Lab assay of single mutants.
Amino acid sequence: SEEELEEFAKEVLRRGITIIVNGIRITEVEIFVKVLREILEKR
């Protein structure tokens, strides 16, 4: 749901943790923004 997305976004921003994806360091915020864009483009 959109509320869950908002909560996830807030949690990500609070933690600001960097994770490893395919050997490249990407912040969770960047991943969230990318996923959010993909979701919005599909609408």
Rank of each mutant, 00 (worst) to 15 (best):
E41N: 13
I17Q: 06
F8K: 01
E41V: 06
E4Y: 14
T18K: 13
R37W: 10
L5T: 01
L40C: 14
T18P: 14
E38T: 06
K10I: 04
E38F: 10
G16L: 15
E41M: 08
E30K: 07
F32H: 02
V29L: 14
E7C: 14
F8P: 03
N22Q: 08
F8L: 10
V35F: 07
G23F: 10
K42C: 12
E2N: 13
G16H: 12
I39S: 05
I20Q: 04
E11P: 00
E4M: 13
E6I: 15
E38H: 04
I19E: 00
I19L: 07
F32C: 05
E38L: 04
R14S: 13
L13P: 00
V33N: 01
R14L: 10
T18N: 10
E2Y: 15
R43T: 09
V35I: 15
R43Q: 11
E3H: 14
K42Q: 12
A9D: 02
V29S: 05
A9T: 03
L5D: 04
E11V: 04
E2R: 13
E41R: 12
I17F: 06
V29H: 05
F32N: 03
I26P: 04
L13K: 01
I31E: 15
R14G: 13
R15H: 08
T27L: 10
I39F: 13
K10A: 04
V21G: 04
E28N: 12
I26T: 04
I17W: 06
E11G: 05
K10N: 05
V21I: 14
L13T: 01
I17M: 07
F32I: 11
L5G: 01
K34I: 08
V12G: 01
T18A: 13
S1G: 11
F32P: 00
L36V: 05
K42S: 13
I31C: 10
L36N: 00
R15K: 12
R15F: 07
R15M: 11
V35L: 13
V12S: 03
N22P: 03
I24L: 12
F8C: 15
V33W: 03
R37K: 14
V29M: 07
E4V: 12
V33G: 01
K34E: 11
I31Q: 15
L5K: 04
R25H: 13
E4P: 07
I26F: 05
N22R: 10
S1I: 14
K42M: 10
S1F: 15
N22L: 04
V35Y: 09
I19T: 01
K42N: 10
E4W: 15
K42Y: 03
E6D: 05
E7W: 13
R25Q: 12
F8R: 04
R15S: 12
E2P: 13
N22Y: 02
L40V: 05
G23V: 09
E28G: 06
V12I: 14
I20W: 01
E38M: 04
I31G: 11
E38G: 03
I39C: 14
F32W: 03
T27H: 11
T18Y: 03
E7D: 09
L36G: 00
L36D: 03
R43M: 15
I19P: 02
R37C: 12
G16S: 09
I39A: 07
K10L: 07
V12C: 09
E38Q: 02
I17Y: 06
I19R: 00
N22M: 06
E28D: 14
K34M: 04
V35W: 07
A9F: 15
E41Y: 01
E2M: 14
E11Y: 00
E3M: 12
T27P: 08
I24T: 10
V33Q: 02
F8T: 01
R15Q: 11
G16C: 15
V35M: 11
A9R: 01
F32K: 02
R43Y: 14
F8I: 08
E3K: 14
V21S: 03
I20S: 05
E38P: 01
E4G: 11
N22T: 06
V33L: 12
L40D: 01
I31L: 07
E30G: 06
T18W: 06
R14F: 03
I24C: 10
S1K: 09
K34D: 09
T18E: 14
G23W: 12
I39T: 02
F8G: 01
E3F: 15
R14I: 11
F8H: 05
E30D: 13
G16E: 06
I26K: 02
E28V: 08
V12L: 14
K10F: 03
I17R: 04
L36Q: 01
K42R: 12
I26Y: 04
E7Q: 11
V29A: 06
T18C: 12
E41A: 11
R14M: 11
V12K: 00
T27C: 13
S1E: 07
E11N: 05
V21D: 00
G23H: 07
L40A: 07
R14A: 14
I19C: 02
K42A: 11
N22C: 12
V12P: 00
E7I: 08
E3A: 14
E41I: 10
V33M: 11
V33E: 04
F32G: 00
N22G: 09
R37S: 05
I20L: 06
E38S: 02
I20F: 03
K34H: 04
G23I: 12
I24N: 06
F32R: 04
G23Q: 07
E28W: 08
I31A: 14
E38V: 05
R14T: 08
E4L: 14
V21T: 05
K34P: 01
V21Y: 09
I20T: 08
V21H: 11
L40S: 03
E3Q: 12
E38D: 12
E2F: 15
S1W: 15
K10W: 04
E4N: 10
N22H: 08
R25W: 11
I19G: 00
V12Y: 00
G23Y: 08
N22S: 07
E7V: 03
E28Y: 09
L40E: 03
K42I: 11
E11C: 13
A9Q: 01
E2A: 14
L40F: 10
R37F: 07
E4K: 13
E41P: 05
E28M: 09
V21P: 00
F8E: 02
E6G: 06
T27Q: 06
